[in-house]
């Protein structure tokens, strides 16, 4: 895989603010990645995205998208990216298909090709049944899906999405997530900012954590977890034989502590282990329990891990 987005020593300071919104940020995104750009509010996510989308000038540094400078070759970059801001810009009295047709014209797509393209895009975002409805009348989730269809109208290589799931209800969030996975399967590179950590855990192949304009951590989620949280927390529930389970766990190399969270007195017990090891070593613990006849009911890494990764990486600074 080759690097498709290269953020090079990027800095941005707004005229009315003494503190830098972005402070010497460098980051690479590989082709085909679903890259989650995570950070607290005011961390510099939107500023970075706006520079990438050729809408804002940095004070120093540059962003290369497929080798083209966002600063010096904005027209080339615009051909490659599909940008979705964190708000939905709407024209009054415009119908759903007209909205896509209008932006298709803005991307110089010939009128003869637009009809089929609009049909395919509406099908992709599941809005075919709303084709002739006014854009104003759509729900927020539908508007977000329409917005995503708009970013795809010129078949861009890279999608740059600013808080795509922000303000959506749980169902709409899941739908957007599924769409992003589908788009990644279609070969798109997706760079999206978010502060919803569940989205990151669910779909991202790589993550970058930004705070006070500085990149504090970047890489695949598992690597970040290992780097920032050497001790993984795993919850295990067994149906019976709690004593055997406890003995196996305590004897396993890499397990630092075993805590019994709950026991019903009839054998059914729940434990939390702190474990220092990779995924292979973790799977071996499960094999060991099962091979020794312990009826395992539940075995999973704590989902709150990502929040802990985030908390450990950031210091709560806001510019």
């Amino acid at each position: 895989m080759s690097t498709i987005i290269e953020i090079i020593d990027l800095s941005k300071q707004y005229a009315n603010n003494r503190i830098k919104a972005i402070d010497h940020l460098s980051l690479n995104v590989e082709e085909g990645d679903i890259f989650g750009f995570v950070g607290p509010n005011g961390a510099g996510k939107t500023s970075t995205i706006r520079i990438m989308a050729t809408l804002l000038q940095p004070n120093s540094g540059d962003i290369l998208v497929a080798g083209h400078s966002a600063l010096k070759q904005p027209h080339q970059v615009r051909k490659i990216i599909g940008y979705m801001p964190d708000f939905f810009g709407v024209y009054n009295d415009m119908l759903v298909w007209e909205y896509l047709d209008f932006f298709g014209a803005c991307y110089n797509i010939p009128p003869a090709d637009r009809n089929g393209l609009i049909r395919d895009l509406l099908e992709l975002v599941d809005l075919t049944h709303r084709r002739n409805d006014a854009v104003e009348g759509l729900s927020r989730g539908m508007k977000q899906r329409l917005s995503l269809a708009r970013t795809l109208i010129h078949d861009p290589q890279v999608l740059i999405l600013d808080e795509p799931a922000s303000g959506l209800d749980p169902r709409a969030r899941v739908e957007i997530r599924q769409l992003l996975v589908e788009l990644a399967r279609m070969g798109k590179t997706i760079f999206f900012s978010t502060h919803i950590l569940a989205d990151v855990a669910e779909i991202c192949t790589r993550v970058g954590i930004i705070e006070a304009g500085k990149l504090v951590a970047a890489g695949p989620l598992e690597e970040l977890q290992q780097m920032l949280m050497p001790h993984r927390k795993v919850q295990i529930a067994v149906l019976a034989q709690p004593a055997e389970a406890m003995a196996i766990l305590q004897a396993t190399a890499g397990i630092l502590s075993v805590t019994e969270l709950h026991s019903n007195g009839a054998g059914r017990s729940r434990y939390e282990i702190e474990f220092n090891g990779d995924d292979k070593a973790l799977s071996e613990i499960l094999s060991s329990l099962v091979s020794k006849g312990v009826p395992v009911l539940h075995f999973s890494e704590d989902s709150r891990d990502l929040e802990e990764v985030f908390m450990r990486a950031t210091k709560g600074l806001v510019t």
């Binding site: 050729t54 990216i81 810009g89 709407v90 024209y91 932006f103 803005c106 991307y107 110089n108």
Partner: peptide
């Protein structure tokens, strides 16, 4: 005002 300016700026228009 209707927040479509950015959208237009990122197109090839």
């Amino acid at each position: 005002e209707r927040q479509t300016y950015d959208l237009l700026q990122t197109t090839l228009l």
